[in-house]
């Protein structure tokens, strides 16, 4: 069993080109579980946790967050606390303290679980995933990259370097929320994030993503349009929730879970928006 541990990005990419079938490993919190369940039988491993470029969070014109940054590091990052607290908040709800020590941003994206907690936050923050392959780098929005449960559209030989996102402005209002059977170690039954800007009391540039509700992360454009330019208002938030619920039904059709998820989506969305608006008043 080959277990490769590149210590530079160039080396990681050339090893990946040489061994495109090897399993890319970071924190192992999905890979080792899938192996145990017999859903994955790695031919070899390519451990990316020693690649310095993937371990960084930096704040230039945009913010870059490396793929091998752990949820603990996201949670505790002073940079994110200042410029994208939404991502830190989402990371603080992942799994358990033990899982957050290990699970990474890149792993959350690459595994493409519909219940992934970072994905709605990254989508609402309008993050672009930076991907490098032999042909160079490309950027992709999460709704384009993630095509279904467990299906992240990476080509052989491509590696997620991290995400870039724009720092939140002072007028930004946001919230993240999650419903599970308990606080820790519960796969989200529903999770979601909203980011908007409040200008003169009106909501602008609303970006709303509800996860664990559809086959892949989507922004709810209909609900966003309802809110655009309006004043925060409880009835309006509920109508936005109804629009989300309707859009989920259109996306998934009636399913066993719909009797639970469709009404919950209404309340869940309304609460997300109320929390974002309340955070604005503080």
């Amino acid at each position: 069993m080959e277990f490769l541990r590149p210590q530079a990005l160039e080396e990681a990419l050339s090893l990946l080109a040489e061994h495109p079938a090897y399993t890319i490993l970071a924190g192992g919190t999905d890979v080792v579980v899938r192996r145990r369940e017999g859903r994955l039988a790695p031919e070899g491993y390519l451990d990316v946790t020693l690649v310095p470029e993937l371990r960084e969070i930096w704040n230039g014109e945009s913010i870059f967050v490396g793929a091998a940054v752990t949820c603990r590091e996201l949670e505790e990052s002073p940079i994110l606390a200042a410029v994208c607290p939404l991502l830190a908040a989402a990371a603080s709800t992942v799994g358990s303290p033990q899982i957050r020590s290990r699970a990474t941003l890149g792993g959350n994206v690459a595994n493409a679980s519909p219940a992934a907690d970072l994905i709605p936050a990254l989508t609402a923050a309008d993050a672009q995933v930076v991907i490098q392959g032999r042909q160079g780098t490309r950027r992709a929005a999460l709704p384009d990259l993630i095509q279904g449960p467990g299906r992240c559209a990476l080509e052989p030989g491509e590696l997620i370097l991290g995400v870039v996102l724009e720092p939140f402005r002072e007028t930004a209002r946001w919230s993240f929320d999650k419903i599970g059977r308990r606080n820790a170690l519960a796969i989200a039954r529903m999770n979601g994030a909203v980011v908007l800007e409040e200008e003169g009391g009106q909501m602008r540039n609303v970006r709303l993503c509800v996860g664990a509700a559809a086959r892949r992360p989507v922004r709810f454009r209909g609900a966003e349009a309802l809110l655009e330019g309006q004043n925060p208002d409880k009835d309006l938030f509920r109508r936005a929730g109804e629009a989300v619920s309707q859009a989920i039904l259109e996306e998934t059709g009636m399913r066993e879970s719909s009797r639970y998820k469709l009404p919950v989506a209404v309340e869940f969305t309304a609460r997300l928006l109320e929390n974002a608006a309340r955070r604005g008043q503080a």
Binding site: F3, G27, T29, V32, R36, D47, G95, Q98, S101
Partner: peptide
């Protein structure tokens, strides 16, 4: 549990609590 859900195998690696059942020797 063997899948990181129960914490019975918690150990400390470089100051952080981790599930030993999910940590590979290669790392």
């Amino acid at each position: 549990c063997g899948v990181g859900e129960c914490g019975a195998c918690t150990v400390i690696v470089d100051g952080e609590p981790v599930n030993a059942c999910l940590y590979l020797a290669g790392q």
